[in-house]
Structure formats: C-alpha cells, structure tokens
Design a protein around this nucleic acid. Structure first.
Length: 481
RNA sequence: GGUGGGGUGGCCGAGAGGCGAGGCAACGGACUGCAAAUCCGUGCACACGGGUUCGAAUCCCGUUCCCACCUCCA
C-alpha cells in the first residue's frame, strides 16, 4: 500500500507524494505560551511526532517546523495581572511546554521559530497583501491592518463554509472593518499597551495578528509551498482558514495537505483552559511513567477524540508492561553481543530490527496506529510462545519486530530516553549482585523443598520492589514498574 | 442557523457488505510446591426503527443522542 493521509482541505484520504522527492516539509502549530500546557497540547505534538517518525521510517528526510506564539492579547493580559513583563511570562511557559515535550520523547523540530523574531517577514507579507488588494489599513485611526475577506473568493474553502452562513459573533466589534469577518494582520498600538510590545511598521507602531505569524514563518523556513500543515482540530477555523487565505492571496501555493488531530476530552468534554477541566502533563507523570503516558496519549487514532478517565493510565501501563515483560524474557535467548545479562545494547538490537508488512500497511493508511499496535501485540504473543518453546530463532525474530515497531512509534522500552529514573548502570549492576545472592539462597531452599524459607526471601524482595519470576532456566528478577 | 465528527462487547479502541483487530478487566483451563509471568479457551458487540441484499455493524431512508468548530483555543 502507498502512503496516504487524510487531508482536511479536500476532506479526503489521498496518496501522499512530497513536492521534492525524498523530502517532506511539515509545519504544525505549537503553543501560544500563555499558560501551563495540558495533555491536549501534548497529544497534538505527539500526533505530529508520530507522523514525523513514520515519515522517517519510510525513508524521507523530514524538515519539521513548530512555531511558538510568544506575543498575543492573552499573554499581555496575564502578564499585566501577574505584574511581570510579558516576555518573562512567555519564556516561562515556553519552557514548561518544552519540558513536557521532552519528557514524552517528542523529537525536537528542525526549527522552532518565535513570532517576535519574524516581524520583518510579517511586514513583507502585509505589504504584498495590500498591494494585491486583499488587505487595507483600518478605516478608523486604530492603526490596525485587516485582511479583506470579501476580496478573496475562496475564503471558507478549508472548512467548507460559506461566509454568509456563518453565525456572526454576538459581540462583534466592527471597529474599522469593511466586513465583520475581516481579521487583523497588524494590531495598532494602544494607550496602555506595554511599550515593549510595540514594533514600528509602515502602518504605524503595533504588533502582529495571530494568523499572520504562522504564514510568515512557514514561508521563511519551508518556502511558499510545502507538504503538510498540521495542528489541532480547533485551529481549523478561524486560524488555519485565515492562514490559508492570506498566504494564497499573497500568491503562495501553501500547504499541500492539511492534517488535524482530534481533541482530548475529560469524561466527555473538551479539555480547555476556559472550562478548567485540564490535566497537566506534570500531574499525569505523577500517575504513570513517561513511557506509559506516551503510550496512552498515542494509542488512539490521531483524528479521533481521546477521552481521558481515571484508570486510563493503569490500562496503558498494563499494555506497556506486557511488551517489557516479553523483552525481558527474550533477553537470555539473544546472542551475547546483543545481550549482557540484563543490560541490553540497543544499538546492536536496532541494527536487526524489522518492521512487519502488516504494521507498515496500517501506518501507511493515514497512520492507523490502533491497527499497528494490534500487530505489535500479536508479535509479542508469538514471541512469548517462542520463549516458552525455547525457539531462539523465533524469539530473535519477534524481538527484531518488537524493537522495529516500537522504535517507529517512539515507545521502545529499551530506548535510553525511558531509562531515566530507573537507576544508573553501576547501581543496577550492584543491585544485580545482591539480588542474585538472595535468589541463590532461595534456590537452595527450594531444592530442599523449604517453601517457607523460599517464600520469605521472595516476600522480602517484593517488599523492596523486586519482582521474582521462576522460569525453566532459573529465577529472574526485575524492578516493579 | 451553518460546517464537520461520532454512538462498536464490563471499559478503551480499530474496522467498514460474508470469515468476531488489539489492549485492559473478568471467568475457566494448562504450567508452577504456591505465586508471578506466559499460553489456550470463554463474549450471541456494533444507538433505535424500517429497507436493499443470498448475506449489513458496514449500503439506503427515517428517528434519536453526543461532541467539535463558526470568539481566544492543540
């Protein structure tokens, strides 16, 4: 099967062919850094991380751009409330987002531009739009510049809406607009706005409008035409509609594909700041390991709604542990250079990894991760059966599959990314010596059928968080996850 | 009012005219000194009512409920 993605603009799933052979350009909307991230933000970044990884697994060189909107009305309002400079607040929350992304293994974008660093590019775009008759300075003396929605016939095409059918905002302030739906490209500086949030422009001092930022930055880093534009479903309108309108009205081809991820809900309702039903990644990481959180947030199809309920993470943890348990059980079957007792060499394993055709087909079909995970779990089961049968060839094959598939999804338990907090290698080695001594004592007790002593040793280890498992080749141990 | 997406077994979650994805949970069995892990097995699942068809969860008509967007929102 060929690679296909669902394109929101044409409302169809169609074959993906990059503009430049072997290369993919991807832009997706990052955060407006006006507050703490919640898991909805993280899910969006994760969806595009999965996309990026899959494109890479498919042999493409991917250029990823994710913006940071570090200037907007809310940032100014909150900074004022906090009595701190707006840029201090923006940096603080930008770092909170970075921390959340890093914790879940979301790959760094190639470029991560901030809006405030691209004012000249925005001015150039505004000038082009005015020149072409699609933008105009406000009819009042606000210093705003608006995009002229009525001048662009295709306006509404991304979301398949007709301007006249749209419900007008009840509190719409016409200001100096020709049409209430005209949106600001440039916002004139007003009395009371911080002096530091002011840039000179041919239309008067002010700051950029939100939609314009993305258009200017996409073009700078990916050119006037690029492969994929992504973001959360809630950005489709007005943000992406406006982006597309202003860029195309400026003569740019713009995005070839539009991909939107579904929302995260909490017990059925969209998670959002205004409702106050958000869950912070930090809170989630207190409930489960980063790998489990990533597995949980990434297990549903990216376009479907993901409903979080208490208990969701426990289920995900069980699924992850199933994979880990297999990998542990498989270790003794691997060739020495691929296994050093408990400590595995990821590099050696990766070189033998392989991705089953069924998995590939599922991923190629608009990133059908649930179906891909089914292949992963089937492979784990086959691997467990092979372990029980002592078929080392079959075990090695299953390990290669599991490593290949989990790597492609960014959930390989052997990846050093997930080893943080589990103890340094030297400590693990020291612990191994101590636990082995206990296991030997237990083996002696068992040989004498002294079950009381044997169970006591196991209980003591369990109390310390060490889980003992008896196998055909002797007892093994692992730390309780 | 407009534009979209949905209602799948106890829960999550794919699929999309025939052969019951997968995970979690539960129950039974195998293995085990007992466990744990693992394996095997067990569910008359497709919102409701009609229709098309040899056959429908999947197509058509109607009904109903839910969600998102149309204002800042991943």
């Amino acid at each position: 099967m060929t690679l296909r993605f669902h394109d929101s603009a044409t409302a169809a799933t169609r074959d993906f062919t990059p503009l430049k052979e072997g290369q993919v350009s991807l832009y997706y909307c990052g955060a407006t850094v006006q507050g703490e991230p919640h898991i909805g933000h993280v899910r969006s970044a994760l969806a595009f991380d999965q996309l990026t990884r899959w494109l890479q697994s498919s042999g493409y060189h991917v250029t990823v751009v994710r913006n940071v909107t570090d200037i907007d009305d809310k940032i100014l309002v909150k900074a004022e409330e906090n009595n701190e400079p707006w840029w201090a607040l923006a940096y603080r929350f930008e770092q909170a987002f970075e921390d959340a992304y890093d914790a879940l293994g979301i790959l760094k974008p190639t470029y991560e531009p901030r809006a405030t660093g691209h004012i000249p590019e925005m001015h150039a775009l505004i000038a082009t739009l005015i020149e072409r008759g699609h933008a105009y300075p406000a009819l009042d003396d606000s210093g705003d510049v608006y995009f002229d929605v009525r001048s662009w016939q295709q306006y509404g095409s991304l979301t398949h809406q007709n301007i006249d059918d749209m419900q007008a905002a009840p509190d719409a302030d016409p200001r100096g607009k020709r049409d209430p739906r005209d949106f600001a490209l440039w916002k004139g500086h007003k009395d009371g706005d911080p002096e530091t949030a002011k840039w000179e422009s041919p239309w008067g001092a002010g700051r950029p409008g939100w939609h314009l930022e993305c258009s200017a930055m996409v073009t700078k880093y990916l050119g006037t035409e690029f492969d994929i534009h992504g973001g959360g479903l809630d950005l489709r309108f007005p943000h992406h509609e406006n982006e597309m309108a202003q860029s195309q009205a400026a003569g740019h081809g713009f995005a070839n594909f539009w991909m939107h991820n579904g929302m995260v809900t909490f017990e059925g309702e969209k998670m959002s700041k205004s409702i106050g039903n958000t869950i912070n990644p930090r809170e989630m990481l207190e409930l489960a390991r980063p790998l489990v959180v990533r597995y949980y947030l990434g297990q549903a199809h990216y376009r479907s709604v993901l409903d979080y309920r208490p208990g969701s993470l426990t289920e995900a943890a069980a699924a992850v542990e199933r994979i880990e348990t297999f990998l542990d059980a498989a270790t003794p079957f691997l060739a020495p250079q691929e296994s050093d007792g408990r400590l595995r060499d990821l590099g050696a394993l990766s070189s033998r990894s392989e991705i089953p055709a069924k998995f590939r087909a599922a991923m190629d079909d608009d990133l059908n991760i649930p179906a891909a995970l089914a292949v992963l779990h089937e492979t784990v089961r086959a691997g467990n059966t092979a372990v029980a049968a002592g078929d080392s060839k079959a075990v090695a094959k299953a390990v290669a599959g599991v490593v290949g598939m989990t790597d492609a999804l960014g959930i390989n338990p052997l990846d050093p990314q997930w080893q943080q907090g589990t103890g340094a290698e030297a400590e693990t080695a020291a612990l191994d010596v101590l636990v082995r001594a206990q296991l030997e004592a237990r083996a002696r007790a068992r040989a004498e059928k002294n079950w009381a002593e044997s169970d006591k040793i196991r209980d003591v280890l369990a109390a310390a968080g060490v889980v003992v498992a008896d196998t055909a080749t002797g007892a093994t141990w692992s730390l309780k996850k």
